[in-house]
Nucleic acid binder design. Structure first.
Length: 895
RNA sequence: AGGCGCGUAGCUCAGUUGGUAGAGCGCUGCCUCGACACGGCAGAGGUCUGGGGUUCAAGUCCCCACGCGCCUACCA
């Protein structure tokens, strides 16, 4: 059998995914156990416009690890995939494409444009699913959904109609965030605030028919053209007498009142605020409170309107600003201009400065929905955030301050709002046009041209993707889902809204747990972003180091932000290679043996290393399960890495090698080979959720790997490691005593190797190893393991006695448990050097002892510390003392 | 302006109820001992940002300071 020395990930990556998918391994139906518990995840649907980035790879890896793990544990497992139509991004992307052809979307018209988007989706939407297959994600593709699918659109309309009928969705005219570039309204969450250096202008408004005036401070002088009042704080002494009087608003010929409002902060600026109800959210509220006129001076293109006056009409808002300031200066009314840093609202997509405008839009009232979500969190702690701190609070405090949600968008790509208008302007909300006609009693209807915010359909995802509003079997089985795994950036946009909608329409939370992943930063700690061009393409990393290695790295990211480093992936690539070669060794020496789980029972007759590896294996299974149950992926990875590399490869394979590679078949050799294969097979299962490809590739080659190894729930399936049972820890195989014995053996071997290294004895030079072990138990351990000791130390002779009897010219070391080891080095030893080496060791012991004794010397310690801790400390001091005494003797024997 | 997180070996990071500071990479020395040089063996390297406090005991809990980052906000 020829197995290459180096693992080639590409081959394994091509070999298995298609077969898994074809054989239905990802679908819950593969599970034939009628009583199997359910486990489900819905994927955060990637934007149809996108291609795979690190954030996806990170989330997908964690979801896949947990899904594969649960599947191997026998759960009826569903990971439901799909994509989001991503209204604005997609529309912008297709618009940009059209622009290259010299066509605008208006040239095409709505119908043709939407057709074009669908065509584009057909062509490029497949890209990300191909990339996801490469990741190895075990999603059930047969259930793949798209938020614009007909059945999901139906769910959207159903929800809209019901909420409308309950009065929670309403149409209103109010101030909204308007993007002058994209020509649509945006929700508060689609607006980003960016700190910016700007100017604060102090403008003076003269009192009508009198002396004096009031100075207001503003960052947006052009909006003064729409001012309808000046407000001061009612408690502000400076302006008390002016409240109620009238100002002559410069440049406009209009007169505006001075009014008092609590909102005004007397400390800021001059303590007097210009009020522009049509162009500022705060002023809008104030205008409502005081019943002020709303004068629209800026239009949807961000140009000044006729109402701004003939001098300004048609000017861009920034040109108008300059002009207003110039005019004020000419009039001597510009008091001063100071540098000022403030945050400005920009469109998240196109970075255009948002213009607050009054507009008629659809809104969703959030108060009741919000209250239900908060109640659920308070009463049942759902969803459970991981990590709970800080995300639970982030989530709840956002909900507490929630305002109504603007759900309409002036776009063509999306779910068109199911509202129709009669010629008389009556609003009919209905599930279909037919229903609308019936309700209206006329066919003369015009549908609202707007579409819904993308997140309006995304928030239904956990149940709409499972067939709601039909009562489906999937909803019965898989709702609520088990866990949602996503980045923290969409806790508000998506997570909270899913909770509210789940409660409203399913009567239950959509997921039990919410796991928030960390963010992968670039090597300098910067966020990866398209504009910064500092993103790392996961596909390139896959090509370079393999999918499994990349997944292991991603799984160990956990919930904290981390700087990306290829080096770490490289070390996991090396780990994959290590696994490959360990298997290669087992396979090259497998003749006559097969994988046999029965061989994994720890019996007292077994050699120490055999009992030990079984203890380690079971402990590892226990620890990994525990880590995965609490989403501690990095912990699980670390445990597996350490078990496989340090325990299994460095010690077990070395210790069992003699038996496994013995010349000529024998029952002993077969037993050793069987155990090696079987431990390896268990280790591969433990690793499989993290490294699906290499584990499957190797598992398929193991002699005796077959149907009988599958979890009972999958007995009818074709053999694959992904349906094998996840190893369960056998408590009686885990033995502290065995592991302690092994540690003593490892200690002995390491100390003698240290002697070899420090005394510069050639590796090929055989040595004699003399052991003195006063402890009977340890003497037994050394005696029983003389063969392994001889092998691992390349010793020609090993003797174990109660008391060490070694020539003066020996290098020595003190062992744990108070034993002593000596390596005779006649003619090779420099006594001075040896004395120094041992003294160094003694210093270390002395330092440690001093620390511990100081602690014990403190009378308060014995008094207040638990007895158990005191005993432990005493024992440690005794052990050190014993070793120190031994060391003294050893040093003395050199004289 | 508020809220939150982070600061541990040269670098990237673990450290889960307070009780012997860990890993990977990098570094030093030795090694073709047939699973693996993407390897083996043996090492060096930390006053856990600084200062105070609680405690018998603090990387771990509390307060303050410094540095870095993130989020929220109706500061004109």
């Amino acid at each position: 059998m020829e197995i290459p020395k180096q693992y080639d990930p590409k081959e394994a990556e091509q070999n298995h995914y298609e077969r898994w998918e074809k054989q239905g391994c990802f679908a819950p139906e593969i599970n034939r156990d009628a009583n199997a518990p359910a486990f489900s995840i819905v994927i955060p649907p990637p934007n149809v416009t996108g291609s795979l980035h690190m954030g996806h790879a990170l989330q997908h890896t964690m979801m896949d690890v947990i899904t594969r793990y649960k599947r191997m544990c026998g759960y009826r497992t569903l990971w439901l995939p799909g994509m989001d139509h991503a209204g604005i991004s997609t529309q912008l992307m297709v618009t940009r494409e059209l622009k290259k052809e010299g066509v605008s979307r208006h040239d095409l018209g709505r119908e043709k444009f939407v057709e074009r988007v669908w065509k584009w989706k057909q062509e490029s939407g497949g890209q990300i699913t191909t990339q996801m297959r490469r990741e190895g994600v075990s999603v059930d593709w047969s259930r793949e959904k798209f938020t614009m699918d007909e059945d999901l659109s139906r769910a959207v309309r159903e929800v809209f109609v019901r909420l409308y009928e309950e009065g929670m969705i309403y149409r209103g005219n109010r101030i909204v965030n308007w993007c002058p570039n994209d020509q649509t309204v945006l929700s508060d969450l689609e607006v980003e605030k960016i700190a910016q250096a700007g100017k604060l202008y102090y403008l003076r408004y003269p009192v009508k028919n009198g002396d004096g005036g009031v100075t207001v401070a503003t960052t947006r002088p052009e909006t003064m053209l729409g001012d309808t009042a000046v407000a001061v704080n009612p408690k502000d002494e400076r302006y008390r007498d002016l409240v109620g009087t009238t100002l002559a608003l410069p440049l406009t010929g209009r007169e505006i009142p001075i009014l008092a409002d609590e909102f005004v902060d007397p400390e800021f600026g001059t303590g007097a605020v210009k009020v522009t109800p049509a162009h500022d959210p705060n002023d809008y509220d104030m205008g409502v409170r005081h019943n002020l006129e709303q004068i629209v001076v800026i239009d949807p293109q961000a140009k000044m309107t006729e109402a701004a006056g003939t001098e300004f009409a048609g000017l861009d808002r920034y040109k108008a600003r300059t002009k207003v300031v110039e005019k004020f200066e000419e009039l001597g009314l510009l008091e001063k201009v100071v540098d000022y840093e403030f945050s400005i609202s920009k469109c998240e997509r196109c970075k255009t400065v948002i213009e607050p405008l009054i507009s008629t839009q659809w809104f969703l009232r959030m108060d009741e929905l919000r209250d239900e979500a908060l109640k659920l969190l308070a009463s049942r702690k759902k969803p459970q955030f991981i990590p709970e701190v800080p995300y639970e609070k982030v989530y709840s405090s956002w909900l507490e301050n929630l305002r109504d949600w603007t759900i309409s968008r002036q776009l063509w790509w999306g779910h068109q709002i199911p509202a129709w208008y009669t010629a008389e302007g009556e609003v009919i909300v209905a599930r279909t046009e037919t229903e609308a006609r019936a309700k209206a009693g006329t066919g003369e209807l015009t549908q609202d041209p707007d579409v819904l915010d993308t997140w309006f359909s995304s928030q239904l995802w956990p149940f709409s993707a499972m067939g709601w509003p039909e009562k489906t079997k999937d909803l019965d089985t898989f709702y609520p889902t088990s866990v949602l795994m996503t980045g923290r950036d969409i806790i508000f946009l998506w997570v909270s809204r899913m909770v509210m909608m789940g409660l409203k329409f399913m009567g239950r939370e959509p997921f039990a747990d919410v796991f928030i992943t960390g963010t992968i930063l670039d090597a300098h700690g910067q966020r990866m972003s398209k504009t910064k061009m500092n993103g790392i393409d996961p596909l390139e990393v896959f090509d370079k180091y393999g999918v499994d290695a990349t997944r292991l790295k991603l799984a160990s990211v956990g919930s904290t932000d981390i700087r990306w480093s290829d080096k770490q992936v490289e070390s996991y690539r090396n780990f994959a290679n290590k696994i490959w070669n360990a298997a290669r060794f087992a396979l090259m020496n497998s003749e006559g043996a097969t994988v046999d789980p029965e061989s994994l029972d720890a019996s007292p007759e077994l050699a120490l290393h055999d009992r030990w590896i079984l203890s380690r294996l079971n402990r590892t299974a226990r620890d990994v399960r525990k880590s995965l149950e609490s989403y501690e992926f990095h912990e699980a990875v670390q445990t597996l890495y350490h078990f496989f590399w340090d325990d299994f490869c460095d010690w077990y394979i070395e210790l069992t090698k003699a038996d496994v590679t013995a010349e000529g078949a024998s029952p002993q050799r077969t037993a050793a080979r069987t155990r090696l294969l079987s431990v390896l097979e268990q280790a591969l299962r433990l690793l499989h959720p993290f490294m699906p490809y290499i584990t499957e590739e190797l598992w398929q080659q193991l002699p005796g790997a077959g149907k009988h190894l599958l979890h009972p729930a999958y007995r009818d399936a074709e053999p694959t490691i992904m349906l094998a049972a996840y190893p369960e820890p056998k408590a009686d195989s885990i033995s502290d005593a065995t592991e302690w014995e092994m540690e003593a053996l490892i200690d002995l071997i390491t100390r003698v190797r240290n002697i070899r290294s420090e005394m510069q004895i050639k590796p090929s030079e055989p040595i004699t190893v003399l052991i003195g072990a006063p402890d009977e138990k340890l003497r037994g351990v050394y005696t029983a393991n003389t063969n392994p000791i001889i092998r691992l130390l390349r010793a020609s002779e090993v003797s174990v006695r109660e008391k060490l009897d070694a020539p003066r010219a020996s290098a020595r070391a003190v062992l744990v448990g108070g034993g002593e080891v000596a390596v005779p080095l006649a003619g090779l030893i420099d006594f001075a050097q040896e004395r120094q080496r041992l003294s160094k060791e003694k210093e270390k012991l002395a330092a440690e002892a001093a620390k511990l004794e100081a602690q014990l010397a403190n009378p308060q310690f014995a008094e207040r510390a638990p007895a158990e801790k005191v005993d432990e400390l005493r024992a440690r001091i005794a052990d050190i003392a014993q070793r120190a005494a031994q060391l003294d003797q050893t040093i003395a024997s050199l004289d």
